[in-house]
Design a protein around this nucleic acid. Structure first.
Lengths: 140, 140
DNA sequence: TTAAACAGGATAAAATCAGTCTTAATTAAA
DNA sequence: TTTAATTAAGACTGATTTTATCCTGTTTAA
């Protein structure tokens, strides 16, 4: 049921890149600032890049940059970039994975639940999260 | 993000006990009919009993029985009986588990998301699931 | 008293998670 | 054109969790 630590790291990472909006930021900096192991973070950024959430630049002065505005990146985007398609039960993704499929009374429920979960996670974009963070900080 | 196989077994098990409403059913029968390893199922039934979803009877003629009507057992009940409190991020359960708590802009989101997820899972009770199953069967 | 059932703890194999390491490939700048 | 800085990709590894099994003890109907 929980997201993995990897996903948690990924979220921190996107959050950091949101602050650095126009700049190209190196793995080392993100790793240091967000307290994520550097080599693990490298893998995570690769996944985020493959999902087109960040752009990568190789070579000297290389690094990473958000691929679109924070308002257009949701928690769902990040979770699915790292963990693959969200679903509480794999049978909700593919009927074939559900051995007991045909007469399983729970199957339609899992399909609906998956839809609801995706909607909930999709509601939170990083622009919104950033603002919440700023309000918190203001309150002390 | 996914429920474990254990939880999946638990759901099948409750489903089976729903059919047997007034009877006391032995582990062996449930295990055989629901295709769940017997010794694993024994553990699962213990958890369901501790969560007061089923009643257990020891000794000769012992077995298990639903502790309340199917309409009053939800998917949330079963998932939490097996996996503990539902949450995508542990920080949503306990501020203290969240090292970066105070200024983490995502924290309030996890708390909301947890609430939504619980609500969604709570919507499905076993009476409803049973009916869906019957409709499916009728359609062939 | 006995046999049939569940309770609970110890143990173990398999899978997944959370990383590390090494060897490319790329690129700005000397 | 060489070099140093940077990411890309895959192999590998240790720790943790999942998915069980087994054994001993307790309860209870007959």
């Amino acid at each position: 049921m929980e997201i993995t630590r990897e996903t948690d790291y990924a979220i921190r990472c996107v959050l950091y890149l949101c602050e650095k909006r126009e700049e190209i930021t190196m793995i080392d900096e993100i790793a240091r600032e967000m307290e994520v192991p550097r080599s693990f973070l490298a893998k995570i950024l690769q996944k985020l890049a493959r999902a087109s959430l960040v752009k990568s630049f190789r070579g000297v002065k290389g690094g990473f940059q958000l691929a679109r505005p924070p308002a257009r990146i949701s928690l769902l985007d990040v979770v699915e970039a790292i963990e693959g398609e969200v679903a509480m039960n794999l049978c909700a993704l593919d009927q074939a994975l559900c051995g007991r499929s045909k007469y399983c009374p729970v199957h339609p429920a899992w399909v609906d639940i998956r839809k609801d979960f995706r909607k909930v996670l999709g509601k939170y974009n990083f622009e919104k999260l950033k603002k919440t963070g700023e309000r918190q900080k203001a309150k002390g």
